[in-house]
Computed example of a mutant assay.
Amino acid sequence: MFFVFRLDKAHNESTSYLQHNQYYLMKHRSQLTLQLFTLLASMLLACKAISAEPKLAKIDVLVEDAYPLQYMHRGNYQGLMAEQVKSVLQKANLGEYQFKLIPWPRAVEQAKTAPNTLIVGLARTPSREQDYQWVTPVVSLDYNFYSTAQVMQSKEITEHSIKSMRVGTVINSMLDQHIRASGFTQIHAVPFAEQNFDKLMNNRIDVIPASSSHFMESCVLTRHDCHRFVKVLPVDIETKTLWLAASQTTHKELIKRLREAAQVKPPLLP
Rank of each mutant, 00 (worst) to 15 (best):
V85C: 11
S218C: 03
E159P: 00
V135S: 00
Q98I: 06
H28F: 10
K27T: 11
P266D: 12
M1E: 03
N144A: 07
Q177N: 13
S173D: 05
I157P: 02
S127L: 03
T117D: 04
Q263W: 00
T148D: 06
A66W: 15
L200A: 07
L80C: 02
H11S: 09
D176N: 14
A57D: 15
A114D: 10
A114R: 12
V220N: 07
H227S: 09
Q153R: 02
L36S: 12
L101G: 02
Q133M: 04
I102E: 05
R228N: 10
P105V: 02
T169N: 04
L40K: 14
L44R: 11
Q153N: 07
I50S: 15
S140D: 05
Q130E: 04
K100R: 12
D131E: 14
S161Q: 01
N76L: 11
K199V: 04
L141V: 04
A114H: 11
N202E: 14
H227N: 15
H224M: 10
A82R: 10
S218D: 11
V190P: 00
I179A: 04
N144C: 03
G75M: 06
Y77V: 04
A245S: 13
A181Y: 02
A262Y: 02
A262K: 06
L242T: 08
D131S: 13
G168L: 02
T125D: 01
A92V: 02
I162Y: 02
H73A: 09
V235H: 01
S147C: 04
E53L: 15
K155L: 06
